[in-house]
């Protein structure tokens, strides 16, 4: 960053200059506004789904930008990082205020996600990415089975917290708008949760996608939190994981201003809506929405690994 600060602006490589030629001139601006509006709509959809399920929306943003708009994967991933932070910060305003995000669980588990993210960025050139896609894809597919086995469970029944969770006072209460009452929950298996969160961070640092899914699974399957608390706490956390890699993307020039604007604003608007809708869903219904997205991502990752 310092080097480019000296030159004033990021000096683009010739290839970069070439593929940004479409942003040139006044005539292109009309086309740009049209593209901006369309991306705004898709981003709003990503914000709604992401904020309801605890994901960053990259699962939607990346395919939309690469397949529909034929933008380079680098630019799509840069936009997806912006989308993750916007979903997280936008949704967490409401989820934290309403006591749905468990702040202590989130901040405790961020130890593992940030460590994993940095390790991932370091190991990016060392570890075989193809193998990782397969391993993480299979892990997600396996988790889908675990999630389906719990499909009839509205609230997990856990009598007492794990000793470490008790010491950290992780157990909490949230108000369930559908059940119309306050729900108290205990917290299981903090070490398993930390392990999964480390994997989520590693994935974010290495592959740049899917870490929200892992976070929700870690809290739902391992730590036995109610699904709404898991998705709201995941939303609270994903911004921090993404911020750990956003600086790199920004300095590299992967975050395009004209692309990032509609993505950030659309996602923020979507998150505003999504947080209002999510509380009206049953945990069971949310699970049914979650499983197909989980399976689709697992499938996509295994394909990339193959």
């Amino acid at each position: 960053m310092l080097q480019s600060a000296a030159t004033g602006t990021g000096a683009p490589t010739p290839s970069r200059k070439a593929r940004r030629a479409r942003t040139r001139g006044g005539k292109a601006i009309a086309a740009q506004i049209h593209q901006t509006l369309v991306i705004l709509v898709f981003a709003a959809a990503a914000g709604i789904i992401g904020s309801m399920l605890g994901l960053g929306g990259g699962v939607i943003i990346v395919p939309v930008l690469t397949l529909i708009f034929h933008l380079p994967l680098r630019d799509a991933i840069g936009a997806s990082i912006v989308s993750v932070i916007a979903t997280s910060s936008g949704a967490a305003v409401a989820y934290v205020r309403d006591g749905l995000s468990n702040l202590r669980v989130g901040m405790f588990l961020e130890i593992a996600t940030t460590t994993g993210a940095i390790a991932g960025a370091y190991l990016a050139g060392v570890l075989p990415t193809a193998v990782l896609y397969t391993v993480f894809g299979l892990m997600l597919a396996y988790s889908a089975i675990a999630l389906l086995q719990n499909r009839h469970v509205e609230l997990p029944q856990l009598a007492a917290s794990h000793p470490l969770a008790a010491r950290l006072k992780l157990a909490s209460t949230y108000h369930d708008a559908v059940l119309g009452r306050d729900v108290h929950y205990e917290v299981a298996n903090p070490y398993g949760g930390l392990g999964m969160m480390g994997a989520a961070g590693l994935m974010s640092g290495l592959l740049g996608i899917g870490s929200g899914l892992f976070k929700v699974l870690a809290m739902d399957v391992f730590m036995k939190l109610p699904l709404k608390v898991s998705t709201a706490t995941s939303n609270f956390m994903i911004g921090v994981t993404a911020a750990a890699s956003a600086g790199v993307y920004f300095a590299r020039g992967d975050i395009q201003p004209t692309l990032a604007v509609p993505v950030a604003l659309g996602v923020l608007a979507g998150a505003l809506l999504g947080t209002r809708w999510m509380v009206k869903f049953r945990n069971r219904t949310l699970r049914y929405v979650f499983v197909p997205i989980l399976l689709a991502t697992a499938f996509e990752m295994v394909l990339r690994g193959a």
Binding site: M1, L2, S4, A5, G10, P12, G26, P257, A264
Partner: peptide, 28 residues
């Protein structure tokens, strides 16, 4: 801030940099 910048981009008809260039460091 982002909305203000984007409105300026639309009104002025450009980003204020040569085509394809945008600042990537905090200083710039």
């Amino acid at each position: 801030t982002t909305i203000a910048g984007f409105l300026m981009y639309v009104i002025l008809g450009g980003g204020g940099y040569p085509p394809g260039v945008f600042p990537v460091a905090i200083g710039s």
